[in-house]
Design a protein around this nucleic acid. Sequence first.
DNA 1: TTGAAAGCGATACCAT
DNA 2: ATGGTATCGCTTTCAA
Lengths: 349, 349
Amino acid sequence: MAGKTQPEKVVSIKAVKQPVTSYDVARHAGVSQSAVSRCFKPGASVSAKMRERVMTAAKELGYEPNAIARSLITRRSNLVAILISNLTNLYYPEVLAELTQRFSAHGVRVLLFSLKSEADANETLQQIWPYRVDGVVAAAELSPDHVGEFEKRDVPLVFYNRHLTGAPVSSVCCDQEDGARQLVDGLYRAGHRTFAIIAGPPESAVGVERKSGALERLDELGVEDPPVLQGDYSYESGFSLADDLMNRGSARPDAVICANDVMAIGALDAFRVKHRLAAPADISVVGFDGVGPSSWKSYDLTTIRQPVRRMTEAAVSMLMTMIEEPGSPHEKRVFSGILKPGTSAQFTA
Amino acid sequence: MAGKTQPEKVVSIKAVKQPVTSYDVARHAGVSQSAVSRCFKPGASVSAKMRERVMTAAKELGYEPNAIARSLITRRSNLVAILISNLTNLYYPEVLAELTQRFSAHGVRVLLFSLKSEADANETLQQIWPYRVDGVVAAAELSPDHVGEFEKRDVPLVFYNRHLTGAPVSSVCCDQEDGARQLVDGLYRAGHRTFAIIAGPPESAVGVERKSGALERLDELGVEDPPVLQGDYSYESGFSLADDLMNRGSARPDAVICANDVMAIGALDAFRVKHRLAAPADISVVGFDGVGPSSWKSYDLTTIRQPVRRMTEAAVSMLMTMIEEPGSPHEKRVFSGILKPGTSAQFTA
DNA sequence: TTGAAAGCGATACCAT
DNA sequence: ATGGTATCGCTTTCAA
């Protein structure tokens, strides 16, 4: 019988609680340690009897395989890192929740890194490497040098809503330019001719594309040089820039395109509450993202909704493929935004 | 010299990129592997010369210590898990961002688990244990049995905005009852006598406390049995329950207390947009949490703001203490909410 | 201060 | 199918 020949194990009084190991289970079940390991490995060849004995012993002892030890030998941590630049942007929580749940379904755990500023990237990467993550989803700006670090280490990387033009990187994006063009088109069709743009911060690639998409389309339509004010995606900046628009000497615009929903909401509040304008009667405002509050009745934004479910699904499956099939080619997947008409603008789809 | 007697190491053509190990560094620097290890350990005794040589070699080879191997031997993963029940609740992103950044400052990485439903807890815990996390912050309901699992494994746990009454668990909370009482008081002082409550879901401990705090205080003030409608923290539920309040036979309330800001916003929209009431002239609405949108001009909620910075700071330092000083006693820290007056209610502070 | 050697708790390969 | 043994990359005694 198992344990017969074992020397009495002296346990010190205030022993630290040591987790049960596969050796403990092996001894308890009277089998080899390798056998225990096999029983916990999905496709291993183990007899029914063996499995039964081991599993019983494991249950009795409360055995839980040590993922850290496993990772060391398999060189697979089953960990991915998610980098998010600013979680308080209303758009990201949804993305984050979707990503973690999807990874979870693949048996992969998520290490979260929230960058205070884009400058944190260096430091954050240094924190990531030691954990030997299997892959990374980055919803933050990374420089070509940073991307080089991933290549050097063969760590799969998928960008979320960013890309490095020309660089061989996988990414999933929403077509920002196209979305912006759609917004311009609808506003133009509805009769607007005087536009203004409340743009995102210059370091935001997404914001830059939304701006350039809008400007391009306006140019094509013969609208010349609309004012472009630079915001920072916050409610406050939307509010104060809209306010600025009202205080300029020139004629006020009758359509304002904002680089995200939150600034659009800020702008609406400035126009309505502070300047007593009616939207969409006096002025039209559109946003971008389709975050929850964009459909609150007080705002009911006309906006471009990003297909978050499909984008996160794509990001996860791309990363999993890159992890499971090393050397698979890079891929960029671009999804179209979905026009969500609201009552914040006179708009003809 | 190091490496002299070593057999030629045959590297296959398409070798997988193997990270540099401490042995590689040791060989390169002509020192022992232990020496390398010591150089990367904070308080170790190493001569300046040795440190210099090792660090140079490490830099040349691009050595990065393997945290997984380290964790295996030290039995410290430097990982904490954060459990959040529903990330799309506007209140949590801020909490999550704060927590991760604070842990990061302690050199601790965060494993994120976002529970779809509270029923996921079992499964989630099973996913956590194998990683041998050093501790857990739970912003999700856990049963006493679940908490027992933590004790069994000696894994430090800090509840965030929940507690298990009577159980020996550490927690940091906002005083929900007191906050609710403050809201009632201010409304009462401003002359309101007919109240209604839009409560949270019954499984939300926080929601239950906010409700009971309000009911208690109303009772003390002699207000009898205000209607209590049960919402789910969503904008939609706030909107439709407010609508219900308007369609009841009885007189409509002149003050509505909502269990969170988002429902308060929904309620405001229902009253103003759908029922053409003016708030606060015709009806007063108050919320709870102090999330970003609560201060948007269209709503400008009177609400109780949770001191998120201080609460997260407390949670992190409590958990770190429990990790670093095993056996330290449990502690509950309760912070008062901060009244944030707005224009959504007639309110006398 | 430094180096040799013994683990940490698994997996993987090789006999049997 | 099962058991023995080397190994993953570190930290940690223990001698020197």
